[in-house]
Write a protein that binds this DNA or RNA. Structure first.
Lengths: 152, 152
DNA sequence: ATGGATGCAAATGATTTGCATGAAG
DNA sequence: CTTCATGCAAATCATTTGCATCCAT
């Protein structure tokens, strides 16, 4: 499923508004449910990549099944609402596509703290790959290190 | 386990020689077995990231258990002989650290062909992160696209 | 009303582990 | 001969799926 976000009028906010979210779901005939809105809120409240079980824990005031979280996150990923991030962990993490601009992460190897890295020197590289004949190029980039607090 | 490759005299080849391999294993009191040497050869013969089961298939003239392949690859990764690569697939892939210089990949989304991307504009970025207080910084970078043969 | 979303339980599939045996040093 | 690597089978664990029920439209 292709991202459709670009076909939807976007607000000036850096976050998805709930209205925008509703538009995206409607455009794909996806129902707006309490659980889906809850997951959106959790992602909005945590500007950090979350694992499936972290999202699930945040939902546990209401009784939501893990399978449902998997299904919702899969849907959100297909709709371009969420980015899947691999930190070479055992778990995938998911982050709201809350910035309209691309960014990356640096993860502390010890405390697992995540900070954003805003940059796009990679655009040139993608152009280079375009010349090699590739189309629809995307990339994923993660940094790993030990943060100042963890370095004793 | 830290990479120890830097403590070992390196040949001028771009590939690990078998001697070098033996030195690395010896330095860590790891035994040199037929299966381990076979896995090394398979990785040397395929300068493309391989999945565990691809490695296993290459071994199936001799009867090697999948669990053994997992164990060997885990060891090789810890020894710095092999890099683990995530292509947002369902499978992890492993590639011999055959170049002494860092490189990345571009993967065709359709035929899964892998090409190397030689570059290191990222060194500047790592310096930047160093100023932020991070140490022991590494990164992982993958590109995804559709190659010219797959674009009809 | 009707089809899609969810809960529940069972299945799947990659990866790991315990244990007995065989091979490397 | 002693320790560690391997084969085998079972366990583990994240993720997926089938089905009945519930809820959004």
């Amino acid at each position: 499923m292709k991202q459709i976000k670009n076909n939807i009028p976007l607000s000036d906010e850096t976050d998805f508004s709930e209205d925008e979210f509703r538009l995206i779901l409607n455009a794909r005939s996806q129902r707006i449910t309490v659980t889906r809105i809850d997951v959106l809120s959790i992602l909005k409240a945590n500007h950090n990549p979350l694992t499936i079980s972290e999202i699930h824990e945040n939902l546990k005031n209401r009784k939501t099944d893990l399978a449902t979280v998997y299904r919702i996150i899969k849907l959100f990923t297909e709709l371009g609402i969420v980015n899947e991030i691999d930190f070479k962990d055992e778990f995938k993490r998911y982050e709201l596509v809350y910035d309209r601009h691309h960014h990356h992460h640096i993860v502390c190897r010890k405390c697992k703290k995540v900070e954003n890295v805003e940059t796009c020197i990679l655009e040139d590289l993608e152009k280079l790959l375009g010349k090699k004949g590739y189309t629809e190029i995307t990339h994923s980039l993660e940094f790993f290190g030990v943060c100042s607090e963890c370095r004793h």
